[in-house]
């Protein structure tokens, strides 16, 4: 099952390209369902609708796990903007999701997050 959610609302961060997201789930497990609802809430709050979301159920399309190197379920992949970021878990920790999606920007306050962010920029793939 592929489910695409496309929204073309006005951008909260003008000038930036739309964010391309993929959420990998495996069936309708509680973790997957939690992740999906958490993701939708975060996107609505922080992306102001300017994003593209694709939900991929690996039970139905197992061969798709190879392309994005999916091991953990659920995994949220940000394909755009580069670099590619992966966020695993049910996305219940909103702060970490925002760090993972580089949505913290200049108001990033947590010092422990900065090294991980810096590393990810250096480690292009």
């Amino acid at each position: 099952m592929k489910k695409k959610v496309r929204t073309n609302g006005k951008s909260a961060m003008a000038g930036q390209p739309a964010m391309k997201l993929r959420l990998y789930v495996a069936g309708q497990t509680p973790k997957s369902m939690a992740a999906l609802s958490n993701l939708k809430r975060i996107c609505n709050q922080h992306l102001d609708g300017k994003y593209e979301l694709e939900v991929i159920d690996l039970i139905k399309n197992p061969q798709l796990a190879q392309g994005d190197q999916i091991l953990a379920i659920p995994t949220l992949v940000r394909n755009l903007p580069v670099p590619i970021r992966k966020i695993i878990g049910d996305l219940s920790n909103v702060d970490r999701v925002l760090v993972g999606l580089d949505l913290r920007g200049s108001d990033r306050e947590s010092p422990k997050d900065s090294p991980s962010s810096a590393k990810s920029i250096g480690a292009g793939h």
């Binding site: 990998y24 495996a26 497990t29 973790k31 939690a34 992740a35 958490n38 690996l58 039970i59 197992p62 061969q63 796990a65 190879q66 190197q69 999916i70 091991l71 953990a72 379920i73 659920p74 995994t75 670099p83 590619i84 970021r85 992966k86 966020i87 695993i88 878990g89 049910d90 996305l91 219940s92 920790n93 970490r96 999701v97 760090v99 993972g100 991980s116 590393k119 990810s120 250096g122 480690a123 793939h125």
Partner: peptide, 28 residues
């Protein structure tokens, strides 16, 4: 052959997860 690439710097853990993805790939 399946190449499983694990790059810790790309991964942000944000809650409960499991490795079902790996199992799905193995099964496939």
């Amino acid at each position: 052959l399946d190449f499983v690439y694990v790059e810790p710097s790309e991964i942000q853990e944000t809650g409960d997860y499991d490795l079902e993805g790996l199992f799905i790939r193995l099964q496939h």
